[in-house]
Amino acid sequence: MGIVTLTIDNREVKAEEGMTVLEAARGAGIEIPTLCWHEKLKPYTVCRICVVDVDARGWTSLDTACSRPVKEGLVVRTRSAKIDRIRKTILELLLAHAPDSPKLREYASEYGADRDRFEKDPSFCIDCGLCVRYCAEVKKKNAVGFVDRGIRREICFVPEVALRECNGCKECFPLCPTSYLQAAFVLVQALTAPAQPEKP
């Protein structure tokens, strides 16, 4: 593995070939916000919050830091007026779905996002896919998956698998940036293993 040198926020950063811009930046102590990224999972690039300005030999583009591989001579800017504006809009759109998510609110205060900018559509899930991918890629249990598509897309446990696997695991619970996952699990639990009726 060769070592490449790139510039992140006017600083020279050395990184191993095959690393992503995000990993290189974090290695150098430069923070880039992420929502759908997890160290054990493949980049998913759906939340777009890690968007950065990349200049590759004069060709500038916006790209997701979590998926962009490092390259010799790359010039990356992680903060600019344009990027802050993009991140602010992304956060405002996500906050319409999950207005009380601690992680979203933390980023919102940093980027000045107004959580009441868009009409509330509380689906509570921001479709980051952390639970779905963690269950599939790390635990290989596939107890939770996506259903439907577009604006109706949501996560859904497979009751039979969840009943067998989830009680002893629940490793996806702390990953969820909102609290929708726990709610979905409690729901499927109630539907598959109804509690004994209370005596009158």
């Binding site: 779905v132 269950c135 596939n142 698998v161």
Partner: peptide, 12 residues
């Protein structure tokens, strides 16, 4: 193929 994947495709 895991059931979660089939569920995803069948609802998609």
């Amino acid at each position: 193929v895991p059931m979660s994947r089939i569920q995803h495709i069948a609802t998609f």
